[in-house]
Design a binder for these strands. Sequence first.
DNA 1: GTCTATACGCCGATAGAC
DNA 2: GTCTATCGGCGTATAGAC
Lengths: 218, 218
Amino acid sequence: MGNRDRIVDAAIELMNKNGCVVGTTQLVEHLSISPGNLYYHFRNREEILVEVLSRLTSDLDAVLKVKPYETPIASWLASIFIGGAQVLRQYRFFFSSSLELVMKDERLADQYRNFTARGIKQVDAILKRVLANAAGQLRLTAAERGRLAENMWVLWTSWPRYIEIVAGAGNVEKEILRNHEYLEFLLRPYLDPKFFKAVVTHVRKLQRLDNQTWGVMR
Amino acid sequence: MGNRDRIVDAAIELMNKNGCVVGTTQLVEHLSISPGNLYYHFRNREEILVEVLSRLTSDLDAVLKVKPYETPIASWLASIFIGGAQVLRQYRFFFSSSLELVMKDERLADQYRNFTARGIKQVDAILKRVLANAAGQLRLTAAERGRLAENMWVLWTSWPRYIEIVAGAGNVEKEILRNHEYLEFLLRPYLDPKFFKAVVTHVRKLQRLDNQTWGVMR
DNA sequence: GTCTATACGCCGATAGAC
DNA sequence: GTCTATCGGCGTATAGAC
């Protein structure tokens, strides 16, 4: 693996551990490479983060993609909840500190705004699909559904920050995955109760699976 | 007014404008005082922020206080929505950057955790009062009400960050006050529809009032 | 592609006079 | 309480050899 990728990996790893203040100095120390080498691969610090955000975007895309003829909607929705939480865990520093990271660089800010707009649109599309198949008593207009999507997005992206504050530093990775419970709660009033239960069952299954694999990975 | 208070005021003002990266240097320049003077009043930068958070806490307390025999619940709830949004506007840098500000100092972190726990508890108490008087069809257990309170808190505290990203820098103060719409939406499924409408009406009135006074103040 | 060496600026903080 | 002067450290970024 080339140093370019190693730098991006190290940025994600160290920033998850120590926050977004991690600088190029710490990066090169951790990798035992020279500052010159880092600046050969990247014009500046922000360019590393552009790369991180690109990775994040495509990882999230894979989770939120509305598959054309997906039949079992409940398990699909469950996979989105858990997949979403996994993305939060993997890039938590980015969500925790998005503003600080992004404000310094106009290009990065644009990229992040696109990421946001795109994400909310994808969530809305998912909601549309889900509600078409399993709506509850309470109905939503398209505008209200949009607001729900926005609320879910804000809650999702803000979750790592919140957890980092209330949980001790050691519990972040465990607690962060409970994000789905809060999103489920937002959605619940608008879903058919039986469908909701089915989703929760699927989520539990997926979460057990994650516990196993995540435990092994580290 | 003594320099101590002027320093805290300047910190709030400049950090709202330029983000939490504003340092002691910029502070003393803006106030035309010397670095020595600042460090006479405060041991270090964090101590200024402790003072800011104290102010924020008592300002929010005034908004969230459950008044013992408040009769018109709808207008009271409306005043909480708008008062809450005003607090967001006034201290937005703090919410935008809480993590970065707080992580550097253990004392500040503790203070912020207290602020959070206390806030969620207050919101829950408000919900309890409101739901006892104007619940809708959908009922909540105490645990579910707690989750709703937590969701509302996260959404509220995360709002300035979100707005700062999606809105251009110039529109932040205007957009930030729309926070109440999103909180109302969270609460709506659990409220009596007639009551909800009454709240919205009161909110509109208060918001017009804020527009006038806020316009004059600046 | 990778290294060594280094310039430059900014910021937090202190010493000590008035 | 307020000032002037200054130190030390850190972080980004560059020049130029290998």
